[in-house]
Amino acid sequence: MKNRKEKKNRISAIPTDSFSDIAFLLIVYFMVATTLLKVKSIPADLPSGEKAAQAQSEKTPIVNLRGAEIFFNDKAVSMEDLTTRLAALELAQKESAQRVIMLESARGTPYENYFKALAAISSNGGVVAIVEAEEK
C-alpha cells in the first residue's frame, strides 16, 4: 500500500539542462569535421559541332602537341614561349570568333601536357577548338 502511494507522487521530468551543451557540442563537431571544398581549375568553353568546324580556318593559330614537344603555328616552342606568344595576340580584347585557338594533339599525348596547353590558352583569353584527327 505504501509503495503504491510513493509511485504516484513521483514526477518524471526529462532532464533538459544539458541540451544546450549537447547542441553546442554538435555544432563544434560539425564545424571541425566540415571541409570547405574549393577546387582549383581552368575554364575552357570549347566550341562544339558546327561552331568548331567554322573555327578552323587557315588564319586561326594552332597549337600542336606531339608527345612532350609543343608547336605553335608549326614552330617548336617551350611552354613559357607559348604563353608569351599567346599573350602577344591580345586575345582577350578581340571578338569571340577571333579568339579561337586550335588545339591538335598526337596519339598518346598525356593529359598533363594537354592541360598545360589548355591552361595557357584559356588564361590568355583564348577559346579552344579541339582538332579531331581524321580516321583513315
Partner: peptide, 26 residues
Amino acid sequence: AKLPKETFEPVLQAIAEAGGIIEAVG
C-alpha cells in the same frame, strides 16, 4: 595526368557537345 589523348579527349568533346563549359581541375 598520365592518361593518353585517346582516353580523355572523347570525354572533353562529349562535354563540349552537350553544351558544358569545362572546368578542368588541376
